[in-house]
C-alpha cells in the first residue's frame, strides 16, 4: 500500500526532514508493506486544504500547523497564545495537557493525531534594540491573526497585515518595522537583510501536527498499525530534539550574519508577561470548556 502525504513546508525545514525519516522508518518496519510518499511544500494540496483532504480520505495522512484551527476551537490554539508556554519544558507540559482534548476534537472529524512537533520559540525581530514594552509603541508590527493584533494593540504598536511571502519586501519598504517569528524562519528568510536585532522573548512555542484518517488506519493490518504508531512515537521524540537543535543552530546563524542577539531585559519580560495575562483574561471569555480544561491541567 502507498500513502500520499501532503505537508505544507519545504524540504529544508526540519519538520519535513523529520517526516521523511518517519516515512523511511515505516517502510523499513513494514518491509515495504506501507510506503509513504511525502509531498512537501504544498505541492499536493494547499496548506488550508490539508486537514479536510485527510478527513474526506483524499489522502490518508497529512501535516498542518495546529493553531490554524483555533477558530474551530480555542483548544487547538493554546500553543500560540502569547506567554502561556515559553520554553520547551513548558511546551511539553502544555502538549501533554492539550493532547487528550485535541485527540477528542479531531476524533469528531474522523482524524487521529500521530505526532506533534514544535517550532523553536518565537522571538522579536526589530531594527534597533527593544529594552521595554514602551519601545514597541508606535512601531508598525506584523500581525497575521487575531491574537497578534490584540498583542500589538496592548503594546501600543500599529498592527499591519503582511502575508509571510511579503515579509522581506514589507521590511525593506518600511511597511512593517517589527515581527514575532521563530529563529528558523528568521534565518531561512535571511532576516539580516532587513533587521538588526533579534530579542529572544520566547513568546510562544507553536506546533505542527501529523494526523491520519481513522478509518484508513483501522483498515491496516494490526502489525502495520503497530509499526506506524512506533515510528510516530519515535518521530515525536526525534522532532522535539531536532527543534531544540534547530533553535540553537539558527540563532547562531543569525548571529554569524550580523544580527545582534539580545536576551530580553527584566523590564521587557515583565511588560510582556503583563500583556500575556491581559490577553489570557480575554481568552477566558470565549474559550470552550475543553480549552479551559487544558489550561487548568497545564497550570496545575
Amino acid at each position: 500500500e502507498t500513502w500520499d502525504m501532503p505537508t505544507p513546508y519545504g524540504d529544508a525545514t526540519f519538520h519535513t526532514q523529520n517526516i521523511r525519516t518517519f516515512a523511511e522508518d515505516v517502510a523499513a518496519a513494514t518491509d515495504g508493506a506501507l510506503a509513504i510518499t511525502v509531498h512537501s511544500a504544498n505541492s499536493l494540496f494547499p496548506h488550508a486544504e490539508i486537514k479536510n483532504a485527510v478527513r474526506s480520505r483524499q489522502v490518508p495522512i497529512g501535516e498542518f500547523f495546529l493553531s490554524r484551527l483555533s477558530n474551530d476551537d480555542l483548544a487547538y490554539g493554546l500553543d500560540s497564545q502569547p506567554f502561556v508556554a515559553t520554553s520547551y519544558d513548558d511546551a511539553a507540559r502544555l502538549w501533554e495537557a492539550q493532547k487528550p482534548v485535541v485527540t477528542e476534537l479531531l476524533a469528531k472529524e474522523g482524524l487521529m493525531p500521530l505526532f506533534s512537533v514544535p517550532w523553536p520559540a518565537q522571538g522579536l525581530y526589530t531594527n534597533g534594540e527593544i529594552k521595554a514594552v514602551d519601545d514597541l509603541a508606535g512601531l508598525r508590527f506584523r500581525a497575521y491573526n487575531a491574537a497578534l493584533e490584540e498583542f500589538a494593540a496592548l503594546a501600543k504598536a500599529a498592527p499591519v497585515q503582511v502575508e509571510a511571502a511579503d515579509i522581506p519586501q514589507a521590511f525593506s519598504t518600511g511597511q512593517v518595522e517589527a515581527m514575532i517569528t521563530s529563529p528558523s524562519t528568521g534565518a531561512n528568510s535571511k532576516a539580516w537583510d532587513f533587521v538588526t536585532h533579534y530579542t529572544a522573548i520566547d513568546a510562544w512555542v507553536p506546533k505542527n501536527i501529523v494526523v491520519v484518517n481513522q478509518r484508513v488506519f483501522d483498515g491496516l493490518d494490526p502489525a502495520v498499525q503497530e509499526a506506524v504508531l512506533t515510528a510516530a512515537a519515535a518521530a515525536e521524540t526525534r522532532g522535539w530534539e531536532m527543534s531544540k537543535a534547530e533553535a540553537a543552530e539558527k540563532t547562531k546563524v543569525m548571529e554569524e550574519n550580523g544580527i545582534t542577539i539580545v536576551q530580553p531585559s527584566e523590564e521587557l519580560v515583565a511588560g510582556l508577561q503583563a500583556i500575556g495575562e491581559a490577553m489570557l483574561e480575554k481568552w477566558n471569555e470565549t474559550a470552550s470548556d475543553e480549552a479551559k480544561a487544558i489550561l487548568e491541567a497545564y497550570n496545575n
Binding site: 519545504g10 515579509i167 522581506p168 519586501q169 525593506s172 531561512n188 528568510s189 537583510d193 532587513f194
Partner: peptide
C-alpha cells in the same frame, strides 16, 4: 515582485529578498 520567485523561495527556503 514575482509570484514564481516567492513560490520557489518558500519551497526551497531561499531568501525572497535576494531572489528578487
Amino acid at each position: 515582485p514575482s509570484i514564481i520567485l516567492i513560490v520557489y523561495g518558500v519551497a526551497t527556503e531561499q531568501s525572497i529578498a535576494r531572489l528578487f
